[in-house]
Design a protein around this nucleic acid. Structure first.
Length: 478
RNA sequence: GCCCCCGUCGUCUAGCCAGGCCUAGGACACCGGCCUUUCACGCCGGCGACACGGGUUCGAAUCCCGUCGGGGGCACCA
């Protein structure tokens, strides 16, 4: 049974890089009919917050990632919040202490930091010396009496080379001399990541650990702990990281990188899902637009790349546009767009929003663009800039508008067909055509030089509104 | 500094494992054209890459070695 997990620490919004990791875990689980476990890694008391956990869950759900076990849904291996598993960790810490795989260390953090800096500046690998490895009971007692609280360190064996096969990267060898005895319990009594991750993954029967490349160098430490605790070692797969435009690890410096930010910008979760899946993975046939089901069906961890990928916002925008105009149904799109209309002060009912979207969906790539693109459907008293005023004052423009008004002022309906017919008549009667003919009407109706098709606009706003707008312009530029 | 990973168009990538089918394919972006009352959509076309240097081979993007470049890690963060 395939069991994988996504284990974020609740320290802020869900980052797209983490979202991608969650997504690949999800895809792997679903493809193999396995289970996805959500585990909250909140052992860092300083930075973890419950609100962040709630936001994480919300963002993950929004993206369309579902899990089988987790802090919100429970499961056979509960609890799924590390802060609630402290007793479990304690047991295993004691075990390591008893078997001599770990020991208490009374060194002060300030001293160690100094040593670290010194080693770095001298070009030596910064690693702990191991000086507390062989403390006598008397020495321990002395430290205790001084009130120094110890940390617990894992005893790293000398000269071992850890070898494992990464599902994505293949054969990996790392010599453990690279690092010294590392801390597994902090001074405040909280166990650290490298330790708890092993205990949890083992106890939760995780079969495949799929995570970011930045964890690759932690893997030997963890394997050492698996061995010390006599746990079976899972398979590992290290995903390439996601880069920003400058080819460094994608971070806040690169602009909006949280899933929440994309949601608020008006991205479709399906588009982000699709896009993220394509970052480092590629289906057998050359296709860009794939549904969740298709991706699950085709996903194979072996097809995941080794090299990192740049997060290409432009392509994401394009993909989102495809979802907006071709994939999401009009009703669904309207439901999602409603909050955006309201945010921009465009107040109307659902049916009206639907008509507007029908007219503009081909020209927007995110729902935020509704602000500009839908303006003519809602704003009557728009301003004219200088350039526009000049144009409207010109003789032909004014004549066209005047003629148009004459022809519609007594009508009680005006369809796209009627509109086109009327424009043809004006063309014949005034001898004005093309841009000269349509542009004045566009300006009078929208105040803008480009935008939605006038026939579509008229269809939606209706004849009375058209009359009002035209009349207003006529009066303004008499 | 040390360790690990990576290297095909500007970007995402196909091809690499099983060398010839590759004058290297697709997508985004860009440029041009068509459609069109405008913008957009759509359609058609163009530009554009095997990091470099050595091997191996009749033949290398594909195999080997080296160089260079990029990234990640080296915490009482996860």
């Amino acid at each position: 049974m395939v069991r994988v997990r996504f284990a974020p620490s609740p320290t802020g919004y869900l980052h797209v890089g983490n979202a991608r990791t969650a997504l690949f875990n999800y895809l792997f689980a679903k493809h193999n009919r396995g289970k996805l476990i959500l585990r909250v890694e909140d052992t860092d008391k300083e930075r973890s917050k419950k609100e962040y956990e709630d936001m994480l869950i919300e963002d993950l759900k929004w993206l369309g990632i579902q899990w089988d076990e987790g802090p919100d849904v429970g499961g056979e291996y509960a609890p799924y919040r590390q802060s609630e598993r402290l007793d479990i960790y304690k047991t295993y810490i004691e075990k390591l202490l008893e078997t001599g795989h770990a020991y208490y260390c009374y060194c002060l953090p300030e001293e160690l930091e100094k040593e670290r800096q010194k080693a770095l500046s001298e070009g030596r690998p910064p690693r702990y010396s191991g000086k507390c490895r062989h403390l006598t009971p008397e020495e321990k007692k002395r430290y205790e009496e001084k009130g120094i609280k110890p940390v617990v360190r894992f005893k790293v064996p000398d000269g071992r080379t850890i070898i494992f096969d990464d599902l994505i990267r293949g054969h990996i060898e790392i010599n453990v001399d690279e690092f010294g005895d590392f801390v597994i319990v902090r001074q405040d009594g909280m166990p650290t990541y490298n330790f708890v991750v092993v205990v949890d993954d083992a106890l939760m029967k995780i079969s495949h650990v799929i995570r970011g490349e930045d964890h690759l160098s932690n893997t030997p430490k963890q394997i050492l702990i698996y061995e010390a605790l006599e746990f079976p070692i899972p398979e590992f797969a290290h995903l390439p990281i996601i880069l920003g435009e400058d080819r460094s690890k994608l971070s806040k410096r690169h602009g909006a990188v949280s899933v929440r930010a994309f949601k608020e910008e008006g991205y479709m979760p399906e588009a982000l899902f699709n896009f993220l899946a394509l970052l480092g993975w590629h289906p057998k046939e050359d296709r860009e637009i794939l549904s969740k089901e298709e991706i699950i069906k085709e996903f194979d961890i072996k097809d995941v790349h080794k090299s990192p990928a740049v997060f290409d916002r432009t392509k994401l925008r394009w993909l989102n546009g495809v979802y907006i105009r071709e994939i999401i149904s009009l009703d669904e799109l309207t439901r999602r767009a409603e909050p955006f209309f309201k945010k921009f002060g465009y107040i109307a009912d659902f049916e009206y929003y639907k008509k507007v979207l029908n007219a503009i969906r081909d020209s927007i790539e995110t729902l935020s663009e509704i602000k500009d693109r839908a303006r003519p459907f809602f704003v009557q008293e728009f301003e004219f800039d200088e350039k526009t005023k000049e144009e409207l004052k010109s003789e032909t423009a004014y004549k066209v508008i005047q003629k148009f008004y004459e022809k519609i002022k007594d009508r009680d309906s005006l369809t796209s067909q009627d509109f086109k017919k009327i424009m043809k008549e004006i063309q014949k009667e005034l001898g004005v055509k093309g841009k000269q003919l349509y542009h004045p009407i566009r300006l009078a109706l929208t105040g803008e030089h480009s935008g939605v098709g006038l026939d579509l606009l008229i269809d939606v706003i209706g004849v009375e509104e058209v009359k009002a707008r035209i009349k207003r312009v006529l009066e303004l530029f008499e």
